[in-house]
Computed example of a mutant assay.
Amino acid sequence: MLKKSANKARKIVVVDGLARSGTTLLSSLIHSQQSAACYRGVFHEFLACDVGRWKRDYACFPLLRPKDQVRIVNDFSPNYKVSLGKIDQTPLARLFTRKLELSLSRLRSQTLTRIKRKDQTDRLSLSRWEEMCDFSSIKSFDDLDERYQSIATELDVDVLAFRWNQGYPYIDKFLRNPNHYWISVVRHPLTRAHSDFKTFGESYELDIRYTENFFN
């Protein structure tokens, strides 16, 4: 069984930024603290919504407005998907009625995949992570937020952080709870573009446009 959260509310933090901005370094610094834990790519709610191709569509997706709906589902019944194609088409996404679906099955599979791939079991066994990623009882965002609190309690940390790259359009949806926090890492666009080109072969032009859209 999952431990119930203690009376003391833990801080649930997202570390976000464009790829090659320094989010991995900041995540490692947070994780090095005894009272904190930070995991890369896990519980990425925005990535569990069907909003197109990572990373281009995620970097250029318009900021979700408070009135935009995100509905928790067990799995997708795709009724919304945007594939922006050319970056110049980004403003067209604003014409859509954004009613996103957050797939719990996708959230679970992505989280466990990244825990295994990046060897992030850390203080817990893989089987324990699998138990904590059993979302069969999750019916609402309140339930999901309580699960985050339970995981922080299980880890015995005051701060539980997740590094989400390019999840910024989801910021207003994640800051739904007073115990949720968001850190955005901003790096000089030219040095970030140079690093992205060296690592992933992304063009300078697209990288500058990513920065322009992401932090506009």
Results as ranks from 00 to 15, higher is better:
H31L: 01
Y80M: 13
Q110F: 06
N79G: 12
D142I: 08
N165L: 07
H31E: 04
L104T: 02
V70N: 05
R98V: 06
E45H: 14
S150L: 01
E101F: 02
I115F: 01
R163C: 10
S103L: 02
V70W: 03
S109P: 08
I151N: 03
R128A: 09
S127V: 09
K99G: 10
R114G: 00
S28W: 00
I72A: 10
A161K: 01
D134C: 10
R94G: 06
Q120V: 14
Y80I: 10
S28M: 06
L26E: 07
F76M: 04
R117I: 02
D122S: 03
V51F: 04
S83P: 00
E130A: 06
R108H: 01
S136Q: 12
I30R: 01
E146V: 03
L126C: 00
I115H: 01
A152K: 01
F135E: 08
G52T: 13
Y80R: 15
F61P: 05
S105E: 10
E131C: 08
N165F: 03
K99E: 14
L104Q: 01
D145L: 03
I151A: 03
T113C: 07
D134N: 14
R98Y: 07
H44N: 14
L126A: 11
S28F: 00
Q69D: 10
K99P: 01
K118G: 12
R108K: 15
S125E: 15
F135A: 07
S103Q: 08
R40L: 06
A37Q: 12
R53T: 11
I151M: 15
P91I: 02
E130T: 07
Q110V: 04
F162G: 00
G41W: 12
C133F: 14
L26R: 08
Q110H: 09
